[in-house]
């Protein structure tokens, strides 16, 4: 079992942001966290990394407390949070994924450099290794961050809104890497507010908004009733069986 949350509440400084989380994730599965902005998606991802407080219930990652399992986890943050003026190249960013393996002051080894090249190659950016991170497009930057997480060879990969502001080419590149990862047994946890995408890529969906509203296969979770309760009454069923959300 990769993840097991049982009636868990998480938050910061003793204040709960997200309550009643009940979910589990096995190796090779993809779990999508769906919910509106401010629902607590990033908070839940940080809880898996042991960066938020568990205020109630159980939170286990690889059978241990979250903070003790960080070495098995990879994290892809939202690309918009990073300073595009920062003087680093794409390859330097990917190498950061190897820092824990390299250690504090030891020089980089050939295996680390090879891992960087391979990771960039997997996301289709081998030619951009020497380019400054900030000069890449939003989608390419997101792929570099994915490559950085891959370079650490994680067993559980956490992605915070990986498709936000990402062009179609990069989205396809990211999706194909994610499919390869699940096939090879890596577990994925990604947050998204794109419900159609969640339906397409995920084996499991966790619908949250301040608390968990539903957890299970996409077909059971992304129904009009569930969405209406989570989003507050703005979901409409279409004749073809799909559900759309309408802004209030």
């Amino acid at each position: 079992m990769v993840l097991r949350f049982a009636d868990t509440s998480v938050g910061y400084h003793g204040v709960a942001v997200l309550t009643h989380v009940d979910l589990s994730l096995e190796a090779g599965q993809c779990l999508a966290l769906a919910g509106p902005n401010g629902a607590g998606k990033s908070t839940l991802i940080k809880a898996v990394l042991g960066l938020t407080e568990v205020l109630a219930g159980t939170a286990e990652v690889f059978g241990r407390t979250p903070a003790r399992s960080r070495e098995q986890c990879g994290y892809v943050p939202q690309v918009g949070d990073l300073d595009p003026d920062f003087p680093v190249t794409a390859a330097q960013v990917v190498l950061m994924g190897r820092y824990r393996r390299i250690g504090w002051w030891r020089p980089t080894r050939a295996t680390d450099r090879r891992a960087v090249t391979e990771a960039l190659d997997r996301v289709g950016l081998a030619d951009e290794a020497g380019r400054r991170f900030g000069l890449l497009s939003g989608g390419q930057r997101q792929r570099v961050l994915l490559a950085r997480a891959l370079a650490a060879e994680p067993e559980l990969l956490l992605l915070d809104e990986p498709f936000n502001g990402v062009d179609v080419v990069s989205q396809e590149a990211i999706l194909s890497v994610l499919r390869e990862l699940t096939r090879s047994g890596t577990a994925l946890l990604l947050s998204t507010h794109d419900l159609a995408l969640a339906r397409d890529v995920a084996d499991l969906v966790c619908l949250i908004n301040g608390r968990q509203w539903a957890f299970g296969p996409p077909g059971e979770v992304l129904t009009a009733d569930q969405l209406r309760s989570a989003y507050g009454g703005h979901a409409i069923d279409l004749a073809d069986g799909r559900t759309v959300l309408v802004e209030p």
Partner: peptide, 15 residues
């Protein structure tokens, strides 16, 4: 220090 400066969230996630 470089990692923390560039991406504090990911550096914390890396331990």
């Amino acid at each position: 220090l470089l990692f923390r400066t560039f991406d504090p969230a990911a550096a914390a996630a890396a331990g």
